[in-house]
Nucleic acid binder design. Structure first.
Lengths: 356, 356
DNA sequence: TCGTATGATGAAAACGTTTTAAATGGTCAA
DNA sequence: TTGACCATTTAAAACGTTTTCATCATACGA
């Protein structure tokens, strides 16, 4: 009997109605009981080493794999990690980078990554409610926290395992991974100052999100330290359409004392800023400078080179995955469930954080 | 003795070990049998209208929702649509756009969208095998087909429902949605010619994929018709890192008779081309032109404006979703399972397709 | 010899659905 | 009255696991 079967079905033919081998199939072949087979495959200690091996071998031969639905029904565990993906993440593959990282963390575990896109029903507290009620997953990951994030509260109340990308200001600690956006903005702005720029502008995060506050705080600290003129372009943010940012820049330039340095929270808005300034006849590096947050390879394509500070979203995803697994495994230790990632700065400027 | 009998209030909480209401809970409350409750909720015809309503009301009151694992175990259906996401789709949110479309198509159906990222185990035929064997989904969507795509063959052999983004050249028809990349490239190249460019270059798709062939064919047809000089920048493609494309452009320009028109299959590669040409002191629209495929808002941010032809990836996703649902429902009619989308062209240039 | 660990296996009961087959009344034609 | 035929409802058997609680040798200290 040649046992190299390309299609899914095996040579011996499983005794199953649906055609898939089950524990019963193995039990019949080996003459053991279903219980024993289940235990052998689960590496239960009470099973003798030789029957264990025999069972494993048969399972391998007939291409057995456990029915997830049955496991899930019996144990209540889903072996699924859900990620909430939001519309803004369409841009520039934010979601995809993070997901790649999560997938990496889940590699080799029994967990699957499933994505619940939130493109339609914009109130994503509903999505979370749905996941909890239908126990769609063993753990949840989502991003862009608010200081008093209702999602975090809901999940905490229900004892549902989760990790956020971003911090909150809630009293009860919860697992998170965050990037130190304060230091990012502080350092970015200091770089502009070091280049001799004295009229600085910020294009930060959308109002309401925790990280937007961090960015603004970092920016403000730097400009106040240096005592230079500043402004926050508050009717646009790093999520705004490129065209809107470009227009805004042009309009601003028509007024008096326009900025000569921009701290940009994202890549697309940096690009749009360049476009707007170019429209006004100004050249990057000559009449003005930009320091932007970089999360992809996009800006490396354009000329002249934009000064950036990197945030590694794939690493973020991987950390979130690992932390969530720890959390699901029962950890309550805040030290191993919370992580604040530092911007990767050139060595000499590293300890730029000020006591505030 | 009358512990929790008639009252619908269910203040006592569900009688379940896991705390979630089940069919049994409703049966106990209404005094009906589990079978009847199941049927009532499934709108089975044999249930009287009044018990149906009563059951529905109770279900609503106590917040019942069926256990997906149990349904899945019993019926063999998963109510899940899987999407295979590949590493290249990290760039520019290809995956996210498509997923948004699929989610839209699945809206209001019992189906969930789950994403199997293929970032790690690069041989994604394995991923498909895994999905089939573990019956992880009722249907599958994936992209970037090859002319003799082994994934398509595997799925067809196993009778697994799927839709591809892209065509194959296999004998047996299968459901697909594709964009007419031939017409895209043909029309893009004709635009360059119309602008007076006579030394044309193509940055197309990665070798091996069906759509890469279509792009090349469209490009070749146009340049041959016009009888102008052409070249295919074969060691780079639209997936190449921006830096690589930029270098390649610079090197090419150092040689003799450099191109003055570029047909670009993607946005990032168009951007990188501009950068490379700018390095050489050349200005878009002046010394050279580009026509690129546009799938996002990225290029609208840069200046001068790049001429583009649009491909709507969200619409593609939505079509794929609808077709897959049709397929799962049992349709075999090729006419409603295959769809070729036309590039959106200005009206006067619309019927550009040549007989070949 | 007994009683008792000990080490390995099994039988059977769940988990929450759907589905097959059967039961219950009631009505109606003969 | 009888049987047949509806319209509703139900009991019970799955689906493939895991888990609780036995069972059954065999070995061991007494």
């Amino acid at each position: 009997m040649s046992s190299r079967s390309k299609p899914v079905s095996s040579g011996t033919g499983p005794a199953n109605s649906r055609g898939k081998p089950t524990l019963r199939t193995i039990a019949d072949i080996t003459g053991l009981a279903v219980t024993t087979v289940s235990r052998a495959l689960a590496n239960a200690p009470q099973i003798s080493i030789e029957t264990r091996n025999r069972v494993r071998q048969v399972a391998l031969d007939i291409g057995y794999s456990p029915d997830r639905a049955a496991q899930r029904l019996k144990t209540g565990r889903t072996n699924v990690i859900a990620v909430l993906l939001e519309p803004h993440e369409e841009i520039l593959g934010y979601g995809t980078s993070v997901m790649a990282g999560i997938a990496k963390a889940l590699q080799g575990t029994p967990y699957h990554l499933i994505v619940m896109p939130n493109f339609l029903n914009s109130a994503n507290i509903d999505a979370i409610n749905y996941i909890i009620r239908n126990s769609m997953a063993d753990g949840l990951i989502f991003s862009r926290t608010e200081p008093l994030d209702p999602r975090v509260m809901l999940l905490s109340e229900n004892g549902f395992a989760f990790v956020t990308h971003g911090r909150t200001e809630l009293a009860t600690a919860h697992p998170f991974v965050d990037y130190d956006n304060y230091t990012f903005a502080y350092e970015a702005t200091r770089r502009l100052i070091a280049k001799g720029r004295r009229r600085l502008a910020l294009i930060g995060g959308p109002a309401g999100y925790t990280f937007a506050g961090h960015i603004q705080h970092g920016f403000m600290t730097a400009v106040r330290e240096a005592g230079c003129a500043y402004e926050i372009l508050s009717d646009i943010d790093l999520d705004s359409p490129a065209a809107a940012i470009r227009d805004r820049i042009r309009r601003r330039y028509a007024e008096k004392d326009p900025p000569d340095g921009f701290t940009c929270g994202g890549e697309v808005c940096a690009l749009a800023t360049i476009t707007g300034m170019t429209d006004c006849g100004l050249t990057l590096g000559l009449e003005y400078d930009i320091v932007a947050k970089q999360t992809s390879q996009l800006l490396t394509a354009i000329q002249p080179r934009v000064d950036t500070i990197y945030e590694d979203l794939t690493a973020t995803g991987e950390h979130m995955g690992r932390i969530l697994l720890r959390r699901i495994a029962g950890s309550n230790d805040v030290n191993e469930l919370q992580l604040l990632l530092n911007p990767e700065l050139p060595f000499e400027t590293q300890p730029a954080r000020v006591a505030d």
